[in-house]
Simulated assay, not measured.
Amino acid sequence: MADTSQCFTCRKEAMTKDLKRCSRCRGALYCNSQCQTKDWPSHKKLCSESDRWYDKYRGCRDGSMHEGELELITWEYSNTDPEDGDRMGWGNVLLEEAEYLKRQFEVDCKGKQSLFFKKWPQGFRWTCCGTDGEMNYGCDHHGTGSKPCTCDFCRMGKPLPDSIYCEQTGPRMGLKLPRGPDPRSVHSSYVRQ
């Protein structure tokens, strides 16, 4: 499957390599300069020449953008999958592997999160939606973002069902995430009668 993404403004799908990146944050993708100019009033709140190493990873392939922080998972938790129920630890790995991964972070990556993210993105989470750092297809913020949420539930005009909303995964621990729906996202073709 080809690596495709959507323009952040018109949602036109194209090969990611053919889309233009915002030259400041390197996260937002556009099909042309007109789309970038049109999106600037909402994008400028997130776009900066800051020293936050994760800004260039904010852009998602569906045209949405993570608005939270990228945070290293450092806590222990039980995997919610009833089949394995494993204890997970530092870096979002099995507890038995956590010390080894932490040592790689300290030695190989010299304690720099930016280097470690390139090696192990699933060890991080986005605080805006509770997805792990490896997830680059959509920020399911359910109405808290500057742009409409792109998840199917918000498009249907429905809040997240209990089976999803109440699920406690490691990347979601400690976050107060909204249930939705985002009223800006409701789309008639998704709404079921």
Rank of each mutant, 00 (worst) to 15 (best):
K17V: 08
L29Y: 12
T127N: 02
C7D: 05
K56Q: 09
Q168W: 07
D3I: 02
R26M: 06
P148Q: 11
E67Y: 00
Y30L: 10
L29E: 01
R52K: 13
C22Y: 05
Y57G: 00
P161Q: 08
R58E: 00
S185E: 00
F8G: 11
G59R: 00
W53Y: 07
C129G: 08
K44C: 06
C139Q: 07
E49R: 10
R26I: 05
P181W: 06
Y30M: 09
Q34W: 11
G174W: 08
E134S: 15
S163V: 13
T16V: 07
T9V: 04
D51T: 12
D140G: 14
D152V: 14
H141T: 10
P161W: 03
S114C: 10
C166H: 15
T74I: 05
S48T: 10
K17S: 07
C7F: 03
A2Q: 10
K147W: 11
L177A: 03
M135N: 15
F116Y: 12
C166Q: 15
G111N: 03
E69Q: 09
R192I: 13
E67R: 00
L95Y: 10
P148H: 04
K118E: 15
D62W: 02
T9D: 07
E134W: 13
C31G: 05
G123S: 12
S23F: 14
Y77Q: 06
R172D: 07
P171L: 01
W53N: 03
S48Q: 12
F116A: 02
T150A: 13
Q104P: 00
N136V: 13
G68P: 03
L72F: 03
L101R: 14
D162L: 08
C154N: 11
G63A: 01
V107E: 13
K56F: 01
F105K: 07
V191F: 08
E106M: 12
D39Q: 09
E76H: 14
G59S: 01
A28D: 05
D152P: 08
F124Q: 02
K38C: 06
K147Y: 11
E76N: 13
H187N: 14
D51Y: 07
S78R: 15
S23G: 14
S146G: 10
C7R: 02
S78L: 10
C10N: 00
N136A: 07
P82C: 08
S114D: 13
Y54S: 09
G143N: 04
R155I: 10
K38V: 14
S48M: 11
N92C: 01
Y137L: 06
P159W: 04
V107D: 12
E71W: 05
H142S: 03
C151Y: 09
C149F: 10
Q36F: 09
R103M: 15
C129L: 08
D108L: 09
E67H: 02
T4S: 09
P181A: 03
